[in-house]
Write a protein that binds this DNA or RNA. Structure first.
Lengths: 155, 155
DNA sequence: CCACACCGTGAGTCATGCTCACTAGTTTGT
DNA sequence: ACAAACTAGTGAGCATGACTCACGGTGTGG
């Protein structure tokens, strides 16, 4: 029955989520990072130095929370606060040397991880996997942030 | 280049992890549950009433943590503590009526979720997705709990 | 009977995230 | 040009969740 296959696939996905999550958390902890802090770092990586308010918007958390995250990242030397060139109220969060190196190392590590994960997987299977994941992602994106009444069960 | 495809696929997986995680957390919160508490519930569902020490082993957390989780689940009426029939030191954690109903509803919701996620996906793509995920899961399982020096980067 | 096992509590840590109130700067509207 | 209105960041305080170690009571079993 087709339903069983779907359940099966969903189970796989749920297990994947757990495993990746754990692995991520563990690996970040080794670097003295946490998930939220890393999200911030990635935002910075994508957009360059930015004021905290923009980070708050991008990460969808309150300004106060960003202050806390930046505090932590600053304390461990990944980012530093710089004066905003034109708005003296604002603070520009920028990478330190170390922060930049760390993020680059993470990108590199990610590449290695991808290679490890998909090693010896034939190209067509990889394509098909990508296509399938793409479909699923579209559906998931559709029911994520805005709506509130629509969805129902997940795990 | 093949590496790019892999990075791509990994990015998809990472996004999937985030989306599913958020969705799960939100949906569980609606039921008055958290992820850890739900893990415990699932363990109970799989193995039936069990003493806390077994839960601790199954969930790989300390006994103290289990006490806390069970406290929470008991307070919200999902489980209850029963005396162990033969070992009077031990406590059997069992579902309440409500807990059982909730877990069954979650299973049902999961089925619906799977249908939603894979709706209109041709069978062969589903198969291929499953196969690909299976491969990845095997690799991930391999580097999860025991080893400590081996892996490297993830997100 | 005594070492060990099962639970529970106390106390404390860390991460995340919220609100409220406040300061210091910036804009806007006359 | 200047006050009113708003914005950026943060101090203080609170809650929740997950987890730990250390300690103690009670029961088991050799």
């Amino acid at each position: 029955m087709i339903g069983d296959r779907r359940i099966n696939a969903l189970d796989q996905i749920l297990e994947l989520v757990v495993l990746i999550n754990d692995d991520m958390t563990r690996s970040l902890a080794r670097d003295g990072l946490t998930v939220s802090r890393t999200h911030l770092l990635w935002e910075l990586r994508r957009h360059g130095p930015m004021p905290q308010r923009d980070l708050a918007a991008a990460l969808r958390v309150s300004a106060r929370t960003v202050t806390g995250l930046v505090d932590g990242l600053e304390a461990t030397g990944f980012v530093s606060r710089q004066p905003h060139p034109t708005d003296r109220r604002a603070t520009l969060v920028t990478f330190t040397e170390r922060g930049l190196r760390t993020v680059e190392a993470m990108e590199h590590g990610q590449r290695e991880f991808a290679d490890l994960l998909f090693a010896q997987m034939p190209a067509e299977r990889l394509d098909c996997l990508t296509a399938g994941l793409g479909e699923i992602l579209n559906r998931l994106r559709g029911l994520d942030p805005a709506r509130q009444q629509p969805s129902e069960g997940d795990r």
